[in-house]
Simulated assay, not measured.
Amino acid sequence: MELHAVTNDSLSVSELIKQIKAVEPEVDFIHIRERSKTASELVHLVKQLLAEGVPKEKLIINDRVDVALLTNIHRVHLPGHSFSPKELRQKFPHLHAGVSVHSIEEAKAAEKNGAEYVIFGHVYATACKPGRKARGIKLVEELTSALSIPVVVIGGITPDRLPELMHIDLKGIAVMSGIFTHPQPRKMAQAFSQKRKENPYEQAL
C-alpha cells in the first residue's frame, strides 16, 4: 500500500523543504499542493528539493502543470474540475496524471477521461473538511469495485485506521494534515509506514 504525503499550503518554502526532506525516506510520493504560492515560488521549491537529493520520481505537482513542465517533473495531480488527462497527454505524452474525485460518478468520468489513478475522499471526518460528512468505508469498497484504475484514499486517515483499509483493494493512502501539521512530521510518517508494513497481505508478497 503506497503512502502519499500531501503538503497543506501552511508553511514557508524554506520550512516546507525541511519537512519534505524529513518525511521523504518514509513515503512513496510527495504531492506539492501549494495553492497560495506563486509559480516562481513553486519552481524554486521543486528545484531546491531536487538539488538537496529528494528523488524526482517521488514528486507529484498538484494542479500546476506549468510548474511540472518547467521543473521536468513527470507526475501531476489534477483537481476534478481541471482539463482531462487524455488531453494533457496528447500535448505532453511523458506526463502521468491522477485526478481527485468525490463520488463514484466522478471517478468513472475521470477513468474515461484518461486518469491513471484517482484520489478519493474524504473517507473519515477531518478538520480539513469541517461540517462535511465522511464518505465512509462502504463507498470506498464500491468505488474500487467500479473502477479498473488504482484508487488512493484521503481524509482523516490515522495509523490506527489503516487496518480497516487494508482489506480493500486500494493502491494507497494519502495523508495531509496528519503529517504536515504534526510537530514531528517524520515521526508521524514513520508511524504510517510501520503500520502498513504490518499488513499480513503485503508481508506475504
Score class of each variant (00 low, 15 high):
A125Q: 13
T38D: 07
L42V: 04
L59R: 12
Y124A: 10
G131R: 01
I60G: 04
H102M: 04
H31G: 00
P185W: 00
K197I: 06
E34S: 04
I154N: 00
K187L: 14
A125H: 12
R75C: 10
A22Y: 03
L3R: 06
R135A: 15
P159E: 11
R196A: 11
K195N: 14
E24W: 03
K197M: 15
C128M: 10
V153P: 06
A189S: 03
A115I: 05
A109V: 15
V13Y: 02
V23F: 00
A146N: 08
Q190N: 05
R35C: 07
E15N: 10
T71P: 03
R196V: 15
N8Y: 00
A204S: 15
G136I: 05
Q203W: 12
I61S: 05
G178Y: 05
R132C: 12
F29P: 03
G155H: 00
P79K: 04
A107D: 13
G131H: 01
I20C: 08
V65A: 03
G114S: 05
A97N: 06
V140G: 05
F192A: 07
F29N: 13
F120I: 13
Q184D: 13
D63N: 06
K187Q: 13
R89K: 15
S36E: 13
P79C: 04
S12F: 11
L165G: 03
S40N: 10
P163A: 02
E34V: 05
A97M: 09
L49H: 03
Y117C: 15
H94Y: 08
S177I: 07
S10N: 08
K129M: 06
P183E: 10
G114C: 07
Q48L: 14
H4I: 03
S36L: 15
A174E: 02
K133P: 02
T7D: 09
H94Q: 11
E15C: 07
N72K: 14
E111A: 08
S14C: 12
R135C: 13
A39Y: 12
K112I: 11
A146W: 04
V6N: 02
K86D: 09
I149Q: 05
K58W: 02
S40F: 08
F83C: 09
R64P: 13
K21A: 06
S82T: 02
F192H: 08
E106C: 03
L95F: 08
A125D: 11
I61E: 01
T38P: 07
T126C: 08
K91A: 14
K108G: 06
K91H: 11
V43W: 03
E142W: 12
S193W: 09
C128E: 07
E106F: 03
E2V: 12
S14K: 15
G80Y: 13
C128Q: 07
S36C: 14
S103D: 09
E2S: 11
P25I: 12
V23C: 00
M188P: 00
I61L: 04
A146E: 10
V118I: 09
A109D: 15
E198C: 02
G53I: 13
P200D: 12
L162R: 04
H96Y: 11
L16T: 05
P85N: 08
V6H: 00
D66K: 01
V99H: 06
A107N: 14
